[in-house]
Amino acid sequence: MSRAKRDLILYVNGDRFAVSVEPRKSLADTLREDCHLTGTHLGCEHGVCGACTVLLDGEPVRACLILGVQAAGHSIRTVEGLAGENGTLHPLQQAFWDNHGLQCGFCTPGFLMLAAGLLESADPVTDDKIDDVLSSNLCRCTGYQNITRAVCAAARVMRQ
């Protein structure tokens, strides 16, 4: 039956995961429940809040709007893949810390991956561009100012 579980390989943060999932399972649920990577958070589950944003082949995507089976064979990066092996924070994580870019932290993985997708791309980055890209995700705590400040600060470090 084609609605039965399917075996697939996901490459997440450089690691290979062999999982078996129903076709209807989102990439976000697959990451959390089958790869046991619970850093990716689920808010609205219909593509409005951006909390589940991850990188797919280097580009930011909403993991609630992609099925796990659609990601088979692709390279995925989640918030667990940001910090260095020895725990050194990624420049974005450090900038969020320094600029108080989070309070409760629920939306933070999504914002970090969204910003990582922008800052690690070849696209030119301006303050207006950062504002436009960050408008994709919702945060109920910070009022956004410290998040944009953090991403602008990280941009200065990463784009030196």
Binding site: S2, P23, R24, K25, V69
Partner: peptide, 11 residues
């Protein structure tokens, strides 16, 4: 907030 089951046919 999860889809109902469906047959999946990758073309």
């Amino acid at each position: 907030m999860k889809p109902a089951p469906f047959d999946y046919i990758p073309a």
